[in-house]
Write a protein that binds this DNA or RNA. Structure first.
Length: 181
DNA sequence: CGTCAGATTCTCT
DNA sequence: GAGAATCTGACGC
């Protein structure tokens, strides 16, 4: 099964968010700890104009990663407790990203990855994995299954984003029981 | 079932 | 100093 390459991420976060459903996330945490997870829920964040996107406040030390080239990770910390795993999309200078919200862990079926905070907690993803390539080990994506039933909704927890809070930029496989809501 | 508050710290004003 | 791209357990019905 082939790895997703830079071209896959070098386009709109909305398209990437949809196409990542069913794909496999591989995290080689250590030599004998390799996680393989089927992505079932994502959200797209569409750059400076998107009031729910961190980049809507402009370029800051935190959002610098999102302005970088596509195919890299953007991991940040929220609520004092949780890390969020995102993948950077669009060419360098255009700050779009996809939040990985939920997945089914194939290699470790007991893990529940039904929520972006839990996903990072269970896999051990922290800011140590911020701004690293997601095109090669230890963190990458590859072709896998086709999602069974794609649905969309408003994004979670972005009520403050005015008209952008209503945009249907959350995508999920409705037939997965790991979807977070 | 549902709603709600607490945990806990980083980021930007 | 306020608020945050969350989760969990407690409580009330």
């Amino acid at each position: 099964m082939s790895r997703l390459n830079r071209n896959f991420f070098d386009r709109s976060a909305k398209d990437v968010a949809i196409d990542l459903l069913g794909k496999e996330l591989v995290f080689e945490k250590s030599k004998n700890q390799i996680y393989r997870c089927r992505i079932v829920e994502t959200e797209a964040y569409l750059g400076e104009k998107d009031l729910a996107c961190h980049a809507s406040r402009g370029r800051t030390p935190r959002t610098e990663t999102m302005y970088g080239p596509p195919g890299r990770s953007y991991v940040y910390f929220v609520y004092g407790m949780y890390h969020m795993l995102n993948v950077v999309c669009m060419p360098e200078g255009v700050p779009e990203a996809v939040l990985i919200r939920a997945a089914e862990c194939i290699s470790h079926p007991k893990l529940r990855l039904n929520g972006p905070g839990k996903l990072c907690r269970e896999l051990g993803i922290t800011r140590l994995q911020n701004d690293i390539s997601i095109l090669r080990s230890p963190l990458y994506f590859r072709e896998a299954s086709i999602p069974k039933k794609i649905q969309s909704s408003a994004r979670i927890g972005v009520d403050y984003a005015k008209q952008w809070s209503k945009r249907r930029l959350r995508f999920y496989d409705a037939l997965s029981d790991s979807v977070s809501c």
